[in-house]
Design a protein around this nucleic acid. Structure first.
Lengths: 212, 212
DNA sequence: TGCCCGACCAACCGGCCGGTCAGCAGCCAT
DNA sequence: ATGGCTGCTGACCGGCCGGTTGGTCGGGCA
């Protein structure tokens, strides 16, 4: 009866159809409106079940949020795995990573938004570490790749690899988060063309905006 | 008695001390926890007044949120005004803008977070346009600057000016939003040094990460 | 002095919140 | 048939929510 906050299910993935429906509903609503703005009734309605049934499968609202977050984070495998084995220059790998990263966010917008939202929420919050873990995986993999490029002379050695990594991720996350806003600026033509955006950004990062 | 949703005060700035205290409290709490997660009682407590008194000055919770947002957005003057008259190359001006931009966010974190939070919230929402307006001002001023640099040959002409602008803003906003997360990555050394971060980023953007 | 008006507040309202619980339909083993 | 087990539900709870109300207080003004 103690107020334990441990997570009920370890492998929560697909024990039964209603659970994954609940998780999908939670993911969708939490990512769109935020944790506090979504009621359990709303989630139940979206999942096509009853509120009590959610409490049959999850201990509390916070547990459900954690589970949805964990489920989303699990699905983010290291994007560099496929890229690494593709052969080619580090520059090329960087662009491929960026391409895969932005495409991944685009095809799983709810998951991505859920994680990003948690990332920039108040620290100290439970679940923050889950969001961070997925983020950290990509960050450190990218940094390693940059270091390799510096070692073999393909990239400048006088730059902080973490700063390069931050720039690549920043460009992608910015595009994903602010797409709706950017879309109706007349200066912006790339809002519906993530691939073109990544190409331009890669070109800028690799060769700079000053003429060579 | 009609359910009008117009804003009560046009110049809401400092009609009386308690109003600005309420606005400051709203700005702080909304930016930290989000609209739905903050109760009027909490704002009243933070502002050192009563909930009823807030409703004496603002029609509804949403009105208060709007007012706080408007107040924050008003204070964002075009950061390029001072930069423009500084003379110097376009490259230098770009770096100065970035420096001023990140410093502005750093010294008014609540305002910045409030606006950024609103920016990435569900479209259709009232108040989104307020957040967009401040964003748009900086975006289009920066784009103009980039165009000027392209015209006088200082910057490459084959790059989309909006993409360059997006990259500059992305780098800064990413740094500001994710600072707490980045801080405890061992690869990251620039978390407490925004000036150094901007310098590195500017160098990358101007000259690229490939050796010349 | 008397009065008026805006700033302010304690107490309250209906309603929705997260969370609980007794019990029901179906199904399998006995 | 029957008793228990599982997956699930409608009805309900106390509490907090956004918002209202009736009224106090104090300074300008006649």
């Amino acid at each position: 009866m103690a107020k334990t906050v441990s997570v009920k299910k370890v492998a929560v993935k697909e024990c039964c159809p209603v659970v994954s429906r609940i998780l999908a509903a939670a993911e969708k609503l939490f990512s769109k409106h935020g944790f506090a703005a979504v009621s359990m009734s709303a989630i139940a309605k979206e999942a096509g079940t009853s509120k009590a049934n959610i409490y049959h499968h999850f201990r509390a609202k916070d547990d459900l949020h954690q589970a949805a977050l964990r489920f989303a984070a699990e699905s983010i495998k290291s994007l560099l795995e496929n890229v690494e084995e593709s052969g080619g220059t580090v520059s090329r790998k960087l662009e491929l990573f960026a391409q895969a990263h932005i495409e991944g966010m685009h095809s799983h917008p709810d998951m991505s938004r859920l994680i990003l939202r948690e990332l920039l929420t108040d620290s100290r919050k439970r679940g923050r570490e889950i969001a961070e873990s997925g983020f950290a995986r990509n960050f450190s993999a990218l940094t390693t790749l940059v270091r390799k490029g510096q070692k073999n002379g393909e990239l400048r050695k006088d730059l902080d690899p973490a700063a390069v990594t931050a720039l690549v991720l920043a460009a992608n996350i910015f595009f994903f988060q602010n797409n709706d806003v950017l879309r109706h600026y007349r200066e912006v033509t790339f809002a519906d063309d993530p691939e073109g955006y990544v190409k331009t950004v890669s070109e800028i990062l690799l060769n700079g905006i000053r003429p060579r």
